[in-house]
Write a protein that binds this DNA or RNA. Sequence first.
DNA 1: TAAAATGTTTAGATTTGTCTAACTTTTATT
DNA 2: AATAAAAGTTAGACAAATCTAAACATTTTA
Lengths: 219, 219
Amino acid sequence: MNLTVAEENYIKSIYKLEEGAEAVTTTGLAYELDTKPASVTDMAKKLKEKKLIDYEKYQGINLTAEGKKAALHIIRRHRLWECFLVDKLAFSWEEVHELAEELEHVRSEKLIIRLSDFLGNPTIDPHGDPIPDAQGKLGKQRAQISLDQARTKRLEVTAVSDKSAALLEFLNAKGIRLGTQLEVIERYEFDNSIEIKIRNQPAFTISEQVSKNIMVRPL
Amino acid sequence: MNLTVAEENYIKSIYKLEEGAEAVTTTGLAYELDTKPASVTDMAKKLKEKKLIDYEKYQGINLTAEGKKAALHIIRRHRLWECFLVDKLAFSWEEVHELAEELEHVRSEKLIIRLSDFLGNPTIDPHGDPIPDAQGKLGKQRAQISLDQARTKRLEVTAVSDKSAALLEFLNAKGIRLGTQLEVIERYEFDNSIEIKIRNQPAFTISEQVSKNIMVRPL
DNA sequence: TAAAATGTTTAGATTTGTCTAACTTTTATT
DNA sequence: AATAAAAGTTAGACAAATCTAAACATTTTA
């Protein structure tokens, strides 16, 4: 299956939205891809033709098995390049998403296998997301929960679900990275903000916007 | 200056043909890019508009100073990726050209600077070609001469000018790589073939086709 | 349940890069 | 120098990916 860059981006975004359990709507996908609903409808017809998605007029979009497999291969490439950029070229986690968006479209099975070997076949990327293997299989993911939903006091950061430079820079500034251990001091119901503390540093408060995107596991 | 992938490929090919001292003709460029003369004429108008080439109807194509600078940056990216593929991912020299053709179009100054650092700021690529620096400057190139024109008996291979997998695989098979020391045993005028010997191995004959593409320096 | 609001699709246009076929200019040949 | 051949250009078409504006379908809400 030979996909264009645009097709690959659609497949990846559909996969992402499907994971979030929402039905994939024309508008939602347009928003995700920063394009217009009309463009999504056009592309949906093409991807249906290629049997990568199930699509009926007005009925939303879903990946077929084949589409899912394609998505996992693209995601594998993306996450391996992110590892390369952080581990080998010393980029910080907020810089790599954009670059990996471009590198991921270089299609060579051999390149990706060698890159993975070179990196020591990593299983998670710099944001804590799991890397599919060469067959497109995702290792069973540790049960993750977002910080705003966690109900224990002591937690460890396992991933970040929003990869925007803005959020990641904020987390850098606060000293929050993968593996950081947190203690929840207080939850404020009126705005769902949370007061947290890292080690012996002074406590600080983060908004629901932020805590929703921090994935944690209980300690 | 923001170039499309197609524009970058044109600029790179024009640079290559200009180096070969030939005037860059519509047909020659079409052949180099595996496209049609009509397409070249179309693109020439665009590149002239962007002031990257000098072009007048029927008068051939030449890079402007700005065009040359752009070309050198693209070539820098290409050659650095080739180094990465060979040095870090253990690809052989005949495999990397194609992959680098894709990787070179990821435009990020920072990425390329870091990649270069990571590789130890190499100055020649796996085919013996010099790598332009971050300012687009080419280190003064060692005077190179092709094997078919060399007139001394003992020579060292410094570069290969044709990067096709076919030629490079042939050279692999014969044990010819960068740095290989050769002795010319005989030159046959009727077909310009050359009999050469490596170390203590048996002599063998190569065609003019091949010897034209092996760059050497006298020992 | 009918009207309004929201969401989706279609139709037609645009941009980029390409092509073929016809035409023009330049170069080579007699 | 006239003409033939080669090289280069133009015109018009096409595919991919996008857009706007208008039409259509579904969902919400009053």
